[in-house]
């Protein structure tokens, strides 16, 4: 079976600085995959290159959504990438702070709905129905991430953990086949992290959405992921199952530094 996301030799240069150096990665349908690495390793840059926020300077990104034809997406605008079924969340939460929780999720439906100016003004039955369906659908998503009580709350008034969950619901509203989560557990307490673990599994099992996540919480990463990719200084240094990664000397060195095993 062909991987749903295939990244080949992805390279990104900022002036003279090489942020990504020939990174290869692939994700198969139904997988939960983690991307880890020390701070500044290029993980978020990698996300930005895939989702079209940066235009990669080299390499290839292609997707093969289940049941559809494959296509190359590097250099595409972010909104088109999302349209093709890749949705993401952000490391530093980027919600629409002065919109309600429900409206935030409804924005995610934008790409799957059609109503235009005339539709908005004259509100024919088709538009009314689309609007009703959107509201219902988004409410369903909010129930899933346990935010049903806060539908009419402004997003900025939510707690940190709730904002992270809202970002996930908003990304899911775009009907993705692959969800990219950028540090979803950052700032969460132990209890919230366990809830997040369950939520991610539920999204994969019930909604059939594959998941690629960047995360620093090693307990979560080792628990949840089937495969792990490790990056350091813009290059991929290892890949494998959680067990393999735990024992990989290169990974240990990247995390603990050169001096860790150099006994004087």
């Amino acid at each position: 079976m062909e991987p749903i996301l295939k990244v080949q030799n992805l390279t990104m240069d900022f002036g003279g600085l090489r942020a990504l150096n020939r990174v290869n990665l692939d994700i198969r349908e139904g997988e939960i995959v983690a991307l880890i690495g020390p701070n500044g390793a290029g993980k978020t840059t990698f996300f930005n290159c895939i989702t079209g926020i940066y235009k990669p300077t080299g390499g290839d990104v292609s997707i093969h959504p289940p049941g559809r034809d494959g296509l190359r997406i590097n250099g595409m605008k972010p909104n088109r990438v999302t349209g093709h079924g890749l949705a993401r969340t952000f490391q530093n939460i980027r919600l629409f702070p002065n919109m309600t929780v429900l409206e935030n999720v409804m924005i995610g439906r934008h790409v799957r709905t059609k109503a235009g100016v005339l539709g908005a003004v004259f509100r024919p039955p088709s538009v009314k129905k689309e609007e009703r369906d959107t509201v219902e659908y988004c409410y369903g998503l909010l129930k899933k991430v346990n935010l049903a009580r806060e539908v009419n709350e402004l997003a900025k008034n939510l707690s940190y953990g709730a904002q992270r969950r809202l970002e996930i619901a908003r990304a899911m509203a775009t009907d993705p086949f692959l969800l990219l989560l950028d540090e979803p557990a950052a700032g969460m307490n132990a209890y919230e992290t366990i809830e997040l673990d369950q939520l991610i599994r539920k999204i994969r099992d019930e909604d059939k959405i594959s998941i690629l996540l960047i995360e620093h919480d090693m307990k979560l990463v080792m628990n949840i992921s089937e495969r792990i990719f490790v990056m350091d200084y813009g290059s991929k240094i290892a890949q494998g199952t959680p067990l393999e990664i735990k024992q990989n000397p290169l990974v240990i060195k990247a995390y603990l530094g050169e001096d860790a095993d150099a006994d004087h």
């Binding site: 605008k77 980027r94 919600l95 702070p97």
Partner: peptide, 12 residues
Amino acid sequence: EDEIACQAMGID
């Protein structure tokens, strides 16, 4: 509210 998030949510 947020131009980048807006685009990432599929809005042209």
